[in-house]
């Protein structure tokens, strides 16, 4: 079972398909759950503390806004931990503020830099593309050692 980073990190489709074909998806929920379930000082809504932008310095320089570094403290460890990645390009779902946009660019950059199996595609727009989309993901996940 490989750990597969999914982008968009909140994607229901990718999370489901990675689990369905026998791997572990790494997305936002995993990182948020870790923070929500750790005792400490109350910092609602996401339990992101002033410590997070400091941790984010491992992936982004000090002059990068704290918002990007804070987000990187969620995604950075998962990018390092993952064995493979599936990226959906031009996903409307990943739209967000400038902090999200820059973090998304940095996450995609780090995933492309890492030497590991990577699949890049787009959301399907019709049934034929849907079949190709599922077949591509199924093939990719089988090749890295998942269920047939």
């Amino acid at each position: 079972m490989a750990k597969v980073f999914i982008y968009p990190a909140t994607s229901l489709i990718l999370s489901d398909m990675v689990t369905r074909f026998g791997h572990k998806p790494l997305g936002s929920a995993i990182a948020i759950r870790e923070r929500v379930q750790t005792p400490g000082l109350e910092s609602p809504p996401l339990q992101i503390t002033p410590e997070e932008p400091k941790k984010g310095l491992a992936w982004a320089a000090v002059e990068v806004p704290a918002g990007v570094r804070g987000r990187m403290s969620l995604y950075g460890p998962m990018v390092e931990e993952c064995d493979a990645a599936i990226i959906i390009n031009n996903a409307d779902l990943a739209f967000g503020c400038m902090g999200c946009a820059r973090t998304n660019e940095l996450v995609k950059f780090l995933l492309r830099q890492k030497k590991m199996p990577r699949l890049e595609l787009e959301y399907p727009k019709n049934e034929a593309e849907g079949v190709q989309f599922v077949a591509a993901i199924k093939k990719f996940l089988t090749e890295i050692g998942g269920k047939k």
Partner: peptide, 15 residues
Amino acid sequence: GIEFEMGILPYISNG
């Protein structure tokens, strides 16, 4: 996010 992907789910189910 779920609402957006719900529109694509029929293609995925078919796939």
